[in-house]
Design a protein around this nucleic acid. Structure first.
Length: 306
RNA sequence: CGCGGGGUAGAGCAGUUCGGUAGCUCGUCGGGCUCAUAACCCGGAGGUCAUGUGGUUCAAAUCCCAUCCCCGCAA
């Protein structure tokens, strides 16, 4: 089938790659414009763009979807179907109407749960035990279109956002591949979402990084793994800002105030949380330093236990 | 030229300001103690101090120059 693909990060790349391997005719690939990133502020192309170029697909990076020229350019590609995966842009309704078979989207949650830009992160942050991916039609309202296909998957008790995203990317690409095949064969059924059950998952920001030590160990654990690999949970210890990559639950108790170091062990650093419970910081990174086991960090940066 | 931290033993760090015998904590190996141990005691091995076999010097981890690599902020 002749289609236009729109997407930006790696999960989108996986989907595009799968569609290419399925033998579909990709008339064009849309992705966000290159942005200055990383140390040195070098311009960096999205994963989707890098892949598209490597297989010789035409890449488009419009900045204004409202412009007539952008609209006409897409229309001229004459896609039968538009496939959108984590594109990062809101598309005007008339753009969604260009393709005869419509515009579909892969969303990494079990809609109507977790609509928004950060469904995978919030699935972990909220401590859900199950999530998944949904293929639906795009609609004017964010992630509210009629659903075509879905796949479920359990979330591991220690799984991080990054790990889950990786898995959902593979599952999602597989799911999407099947949907497009079926659409190619003929009309498909779509069921409306129950809007009353909708929850929302906004994009994470670094403002969410600081750990609230008054929470329970399980909540802190969810917070930490939901923030890896970005933006990563943080805390300040002895005046130093630390990124916290991994914590472990304990059955211990303490009468120390939340956020106070309780003890240093072979495993790492035990910290007091809410209700006198204790979690162990297992893996961390200091500014300018590498990510390392907490026990290693403490060897060179001994802390005093009050 | 966006700002900044760093590369010293297998790991994490100190030492660099003011050049002068390579240190700490841990791991590892051997021995001891112990009912036992991740605990404790004694002893040993292990480093061309990122690179240039660069410059200055009687002498460089330390000062100067160049290069490579890692990381934080910011996006």
């Amino acid at each position: 089938m002749r289609l236009v693909f729109m997407g930006t990060p790696d999960i989108a790349r996986k989907c595009l790659q799968r569609l290419v391997e399925d033998g579909h005719e990709i008339a064009g690939v849309y992705t966000k414009p290159d942005t200055p990133k990383n140390r040195g502020m070098k311009m960096e192309a999205s994963e989707v763009k890098q892949y598209a170029l490597s297989v010789g697909l035409p890449v488009y990076q419009p900045t204004r979807w409202k412009s007539e020229q952008t609209y006409q350019t897409l229309k001229a590609l004459q896609p039968e179907l538009i496939v959108v995966v984590a594109y990062g842009r809101i598309l005007p309704q008339r753009v969604l109407d260009i393709a005869p078979r419509g515009a579909i989207n892969l969303h990494a949650s079990l809609l109507p749960q977790l609509r928004g830009a950060g469904p995978v992160q919030w699935a972990v942050l909220r401590g859900l035990e199950t999530t998944g991916a949904t293929v639906m039609y795009l609609s004017a309202e964010m992630d509210a279109g009629d659903m075509i296909d879905r796949v479920e998957t359990p979330i591991g008790p220690d799984e991080t956002y990054g790990e889950l995203l990786e898995r959902l990317g593979d599952l999602g690409a597989e799911l999407l591949s099947g949907t497009v095949r079926r659409m190619e064969a003929g009309p498909v059924e779509a069921v409306p979402q129950d809007a009353s059950q909708a929850t929302y998952a906004p994009m994470l920001t670094k403002e969410l990084s600081p750990i609230d030590w008054s929470q329970s160990p399980q909540q802190i654990h969810n917070h930490v793994r939901g923030m890896v690999p970005w933006p990563v949970a943080t805390t300040v210890l002895e005046g130093k800002k630390l990124k916290i990559f991994r914590v472990g639950l304990t059955d211990l108790h303490t009468d120390k105030a939340p956020g106070t170091p309780v003890a240093v062990t072979k495993q790492g650093l035990q910290m007091a949380c809410g209700q006198g419970e204790v979690v162990t910081i297992l893996e961390l990174q200091a500014e300018g330093g590498k990510r390392m086991r907490a026990a290693d960090y403490l060897r060179g940066h001994p802390i005093t236990i009050a």
